[in-house]
Simulated assay, not measured.
Amino acid sequence: MEISSLPLSPSLRSKLLSAGYTNLCSLSSISPPELARALNISNHEAAGILKVVLQRRSRVDGAGESHAIISGAQTAWDILRDEQTLTHITTSCEELDTILGGGINCKEVTEIGGVPGMGKTQLGVYRIQLAINVQIPVDYGGLGGKAIYIDTEGSFMVERVFQIAEACIQDTLDNFALKHKDFQVCGEKMQPKAFLANIFYFRICSYTEQIAVINYLDKFIAEQQNVKLVVIDSVTFHFRQDFEDLALRTRVLSGMALKLMKLAKKFSLAVVLLNQVTTKFIDGSFQLTLALGDSWSHACTNRVILYWNGNERYAYIDKSPSLQSASASFSVTSKGIRSATSNSKRIKIM
């Protein structure tokens, strides 16, 4: 059960969410003094909050929530069948789709980061490409889904979205026509306007807003139906800017990661997170790594790192429970992400 449903004042609920307490379970083993310090409130107020939590949990348990959890167990056969029917979002690059097992997996959280020199514009195109590709109609071999784009840095480029949508539609129609000579174009669905109308955009200006929107997604996705992709660009920005207490940051991030994993499973959608790069002192030297620390590195199902190899861009699967570590080249063109071309040149993006 969510903290937002508790009969508390808005200020106390806001403090709980900001400190990373998003559900009743996160408050199950904390004492009043510890909660008081975390929220900067009195011990009396903290004790009152925990009393409300205890009362609400007693009601929930009495209503049979524990039985629902037990009855929700899956067999190994069910899990295998789910994996065999797992859907993917194409990246528009055949080589990249191959190492990803068909594309970006639904029901999973995938983190993507780029080394210096890749350029934020290049990483942004990757995200936009997925938000467009997830909408390719089922009749044309796609998922026919909708996308949610959470922008924490103000880098969303709607003109680029329109451009990539036009190219995706044209390529989809051309490829489909080669295989089906007598096909009929689905006019309304295969228009850039329709693709843009199915991208729901949230502009986030603080980490508290980021947490609040993620907590709201469960309800929003249930109302919209058929959302198949959630993009956060970037998950890192506000958590590197606004935090001095690293222990608090770790707790908040852990709660957010758990929420995103649950959303991916519950709605059979893909969650894609953009991360920034930082340096870490390892074995006597500074090495590049993705930001937010070691604990965050375990929060996502898959981790993909984009890098340069000479004049070509590559994507490397750094971590995945089901995919082998592998690299694939790709290009960033006026149409968006595409298979690598022999004449691609390295251009420094400011």
Rank of each mutant, 00 (worst) to 15 (best):
S71H: 08
M157H: 14
N23D: 14
L217A: 04
L39S: 07
S342W: 09
A326Q: 15
G187A: 11
T85Y: 10
Q84H: 13
R338K: 12
V227H: 02
I70S: 09
L246K: 10
N175G: 07
S339M: 02
T90V: 02
V304K: 02
F267C: 00
Q191E: 13
I79L: 15
K193E: 05
G101F: 03
K51R: 06
F281L: 08
L258K: 03
R56L: 04
L54N: 07
P10E: 15
G113M: 08
R346I: 10
L229T: 05
S9R: 11
I317D: 08
L130D: 08
Q84I: 13
I70N: 10
S268F: 05
A197P: 12
G284V: 07
S66P: 02
S344G: 12
L24P: 02
E153F: 05
D97W: 00
V115L: 15
L24E: 05
R346F: 07
G145P: 05
S5M: 13
Y314S: 09
H238K: 15
V158T: 14
G142R: 14
S28N: 12
V109S: 06
R37F: 11
V125N: 02
A47M: 13
G117W: 12
F220S: 15
S4L: 01
V115Y: 12
S297E: 15
S342V: 14
M256T: 03
G119H: 09
K345I: 11
T75I: 14
E159M: 05
Y149H: 07
A328M: 03
N133I: 00
L258F: 07
I211S: 09
L274R: 01
E108F: 05
T75K: 04
D174V: 13
I347F: 13
A326F: 08
R37A: 10
G64T: 04
E111L: 10
D245L: 02
K259F: 01
V272H: 04
R37I: 10
Y201G: 04
Y307K: 13
S92W: 00
N43H: 11
L17A: 12
L178C: 13
G20V: 06
S339D: 15
G102T: 08
I41Y: 03
F237T: 11
K219N: 07
E209L: 06
Y316Q: 13
E94Q: 09
A340L: 02
I89R: 03
D318S: 15
T172H: 02
K189F: 10
V53M: 04
